[in-house]
Amino acid sequence: MFFLSVIEHTLRLPPHLLSLPLKEAIKGELETLFLDKVISSLGLCVSIYDIRSIDGGFIFAGDGASTYTVVFRLIMFRPFVGEILVGKLKSSDANGLRLSLGFFDDIYVPVHLLPNPSHLLPDPDNKHGVRWTWEFQEEQFPIDGKDEIRFRVHSINYPSIPVEQEKEAKPFAPMVITGSLDYDGLGPISWWV
């Protein structure tokens, strides 16, 4: 689920960082630029792994800062299609489930990828809530938030930033994972243990 990616970036180092060692200053700048951000088709940046080379230090005319070309490696969160991940239930509604890994929340399991046949039943613990329940050999297996849920990565999408967004629309997510529970061994861990 984690991969390394090599990135080259031309970076302007503001002069107030001149007192720091060069490597430290550049690392700090890179962290503010990349950490916890999604790079389209590369995934979510978790951490700066190492800095491979620092070149340049050129000062452009009329600019009070030096510019460096840095080559570095990032740890990216980018699951591959077909990978099995473990997450927690964040919410469930008529469209399916939303799962969370703690550091990444945009994982959706649509209705057609839930175990078949599944039914939407009212949640006995929460008056306004609903809960998906898998029916297997006349037994009910509810998907509640009690234990961790295993899911298979069905697809990963990087939607482009919308030009205009409706007022009621849910917040824009730059990386969306579609998960599937429709296979033996997937779903809440307590189903199978």
Partner: peptide, 24 residues
């Protein structure tokens, strides 16, 4: 920003955890 190599190797969860531990 230029992506030189999108896939320079996979890391296991253990390796990422060790990396974060080494950062303190």
């Amino acid at each position: 920003m230029k992506i030189q190599e999108p896939n320079a190797g996979a890391l296991t969860n253990f390796e990422v955890l060790e990396f974060l531990r080494s950062k303190g």
